[in-house]
Simulated assay, not measured.
Amino acid sequence: MATPSTEAQFVTFSLGDEIFAVPVEVVREILDHEEPFKIPHGPDYLLGLRDVRGQGVPVIDLRIRLGMTRTEKTPHTRILVLDVPVESRMLALGLVADRVYEVVPFMKTQIETAPDIGVRWRSDYIAGVVRRESGFVVIIDLARLFSDSGSALVGVGQEARVA
């Protein structure tokens, strides 16, 4: 039997054909997708605000934040409401996912580092990669993805459109 120090629980979700995961302890709830209240002049990945139990929570299109195409809403589209520890504060965020799958345990020995491709690339948001029969699961480092000082992806949406 696995001990808490050798195993961690993650919520898995998809963006397109790719599978991602976040630690279960940061997930507050999973909601059906609703159009958020638009905020003028926000970054392209900020879709707006959503009321979550009396709190205005920014909704992020994670596909755009990661340099992918904009999310196309389907009946499976969900919003993961997360409490992300960033620097000295707790950041409440709603991440749009194409589909949310399940909570899965990963042995810490299964989690590999981001692959080395010989050149610098924006992999700072990857906390680890887990191999599965159907491919890979990318574990996202949410604090790094959404902190000002550590974000590897500032401006990535603009670069993706130019490319």
Results as ranks from 00 to 15, higher is better:
40 P>N: 06
118 G>D: 10
102 E>R: 13
124 D>A: 15
142 L>A: 07
145 L>S: 09
63 R>D: 02
23 P>C: 05
22 V>L: 08
146 F>D: 14
96 V>P: 04
89 R>E: 15
109 T>K: 13
112 E>I: 05
146 F>I: 08
96 V>A: 08
138 V>G: 03
40 P>S: 05
114 A>C: 05
7 E>L: 13
58 P>H: 04
125 Y>S: 04
6 T>N: 13
64 I>D: 01
142 L>E: 03
157 G>L: 08
106 F>Y: 12
82 L>R: 03
118 G>P: 07
46 L>Y: 11
130 V>M: 05
65 R>K: 15
109 T>F: 05
70 R>A: 05
142 L>P: 03
103 V>T: 14
91 L>H: 10
154 V>T: 11
25 E>K: 09
99 R>S: 12
101 Y>R: 14
144 R>T: 15
70 R>V: 00
22 V>E: 00
60 I>P: 01
36 P>N: 06
61 D>A: 00
14 S>H: 13
14 S>T: 15
57 V>M: 04
117 I>G: 02
75 P>T: 02
14 S>Y: 09
89 R>H: 12
116 D>G: 01
158 Q>C: 07
96 V>M: 08
10 F>C: 06
50 R>D: 01
11 V>I: 15
72 E>S: 11
137 V>C: 05
112 E>A: 15
17 D>H: 11
153 L>H: 10
53 R>T: 03
70 R>D: 01
15 L>Y: 07
39 I>A: 06
